[in-house]
Structure formats: C-alpha cells, structure tokens
C-alpha cells in the first residue's frame, strides 16, 4: 500500500531498539531484543498474550526503564535526556493507550485542546476550534465534542483518544491495540482511518495489535515477538512464510486464512 512511501524515505530509522532486556522480578520479558522502525511506515507488532508487546511500546515511549540495552527515538536516548529536552522529543510522538486514557474530568474537546494549550500555548478558543477539527479528522460526530468520556461508546473513546494523540501533529504514532473491543465495522473503519491519516500526515505508526485484519489492511511491515525477542520483521507475506510453529499457527490458522482471503479480495477490488 505504502511501498512507494517507504522506499523513497531511504529506510531511515526513527526508532532503534538495541539489545533491550526487560525483566519483572524473575520473569524475563525481553532478552536482547532488536528492532528498527523506519520513517513513514506502519509497523505492526504481533505476538501471543504476555510476550511483552505493550511493554515494548511502553519502553520505547519511556514509561518503562529497561534493565539494559538502548532505545533511541529520533536518534536520542530518551532516558538519558534531561527533562526539558525529553519533553521536546515526547511532543513529537502521540500515544493511543489501550483503553483510551482520556481524562475523565474533561470533555472530549478539552481533552484534545489540553496539549494545544499547554505545549503550543494557544488561547483557549483557538485550541478548542483546532480540537474540533482534529475530532472531525478522527471521524467523531459533531455532538461528541461537549460530552464527557463516560458518555461515549468504546469506538468513540478510541477515536477521541486518537484525536488527542494527533493534537500536536506527531511524527510517530503509537497505537496499543486500537481495534480491540470494537465491532468489526468500527474496526475496519478505524483501520482505514489510520491509513488515511498516515498518508495525509506522513506519520510513522507503531501498531501493537492482535487483529489479523488490521495487519493485512494497514501494515507495511510486521514484527513478530516470540521467545523474548523479535522473531521476524518483514512485509506480512514474508513473515507469514517464516518456518516457526507460532507464526504458522497465527497466520495459517482458521482466522489467519480468513483474514488473508478477505485482504486479497480487497486488493482485487
């Protein structure tokens, strides 16, 4: 889909993970894990439950301090930076948390306007107008802006959270299971929304997911996390051909075959 995009960017890595080791107590999560994410691509990260997909995401955005190894985002080691510089880097990425993590005491519009007011220093009316446009970009209906998160459905919460993660026009977007808990129609709409926004805004997307349809429809490359490291990171057809029992079961199980068929059918259209 975005093959042209990826090649012309000359494979410039924006995220470099090297020899990452994460451990919770005695439980080893990552063992010398290496991963590159290139500018302008959508990278899907898959793996069984408990293989540390979310932990990897949280390590990259600096919420988890790794035991050893380095994580570089835009060529800078987040954990080694002083707080001010780190905040500058953090403004260049947007994060969509698994359950949205919208601030429950603010309306949806205020949630999106908050980073605009705090970081970009916009006056409130301007920030709320811009927030309205971001919400429209994320596909929320007009009356949603004044509502509180507790009044929204699951799909709308994801969209509102996406609008907030896009507030500062990030270069990298981190999505933690964006389609989990959505009905198939909303999930498909969310997938195409991500592709549209990625094309329009030139985003690099780091996507943690379980959803095979999302992988087939959106991702340029897929990284498989297994046995504490990245087993393969390549375009989906290559990954699916990898000779590993888990990968085989994942991509060629009943759900995998169904997703593949629908993806091929989609491409012919």
């Amino acid at each position: 889909m975005n093959a042209i995009h990826a090649t012309e960017a000359a494979r410039q890595p924006v995220i470099e993970v090297r020899d990452l080791v994460n451990r919770f107590g005695t439980q080893l999560v990552h063992d010398h894990l290496n991963l590159d994410v290139y500018r302008g691509e959508i990278l899907g990260v898959v793996g069984g439950s408990g293989t540390g997909k979310s932990v990897l995401l949280r390590t990259i955005i600096g919420l988890v301090r790794p035991e050893s190894g380095s994580v570089r985002v835009f060529g800078e080691d987040l954990l080694a930076l002083p707080a001010e510089r780190r905040s500058m880097v953090e403004r260049r990425f947007g994060v969509l948390f698994q359950s949205g993590a919208l601030f429950s005491s603010l309306t949806v519009a205020e949630n999106v306007a908050l980073p605009l007011i705090e970081h970009a220093g916009l006056p409130r009316p301007d920030a709320e107008r811009l927030a309205g446009v971001k919400l429209a970009l994320a596909g929320l209906p007009i009356d949603a802006a004044g509502k509180y998160p507790s009044q929204l459905s699951g799909g709308m919460i994801k969209r509102a959270a996406l609008a907030r993660s896009l507030a500062l026009d990030p270069e990298i977007l981190f999505l933690d299971e964006p389609t989990a808990g959505l009905d198939p129609i909303s999930a498909a709409a969310f997938d195409s929304l991500i592709v549209t926004l990625q094309n329009a805004l030139g985003l690099t997307v780091f996507l943690v997911t379980h959803d095979l349809d999302t992988l087939y429809t959106t991702c340029d490359r897929v990284a498989v996390l297994s046995q504490h490291r990245v087993l393969a990171a390549a375009p989906i057809d290559e990954v699916a051909a990898t000779d590993d029992p888990w990968v085989q079961a994942y991509f060629h199980g009943p759900r995998g075959r169904a997703a593949l068929q629908s993806a091929h059918a989609g491409r012919k259209d």
Binding site: A131, G132, V133, A136, L137, I142, A145, T196, A200
Partner: peptide, 21 residues
C-alpha cells in the same frame, strides 16, 4: 502529493467540523 493529501483531508474534516457546544 503528501501536502495535497493533508489539505484535502483537513478541508473534508472542516465540512463536518466538530464544534464545541
């Protein structure tokens, strides 16, 4: 092309402009 795509997306979004009450 990417700029044009961005302009088009935002202009479309402006049509369904999400206005705070």
């Amino acid at each position: 092309a990417p700029r044009r795509a961005l302009l088009k997306t935002v202009a479309d979004a402006m049509n369904t402009y999400c206005q705070p009450l």
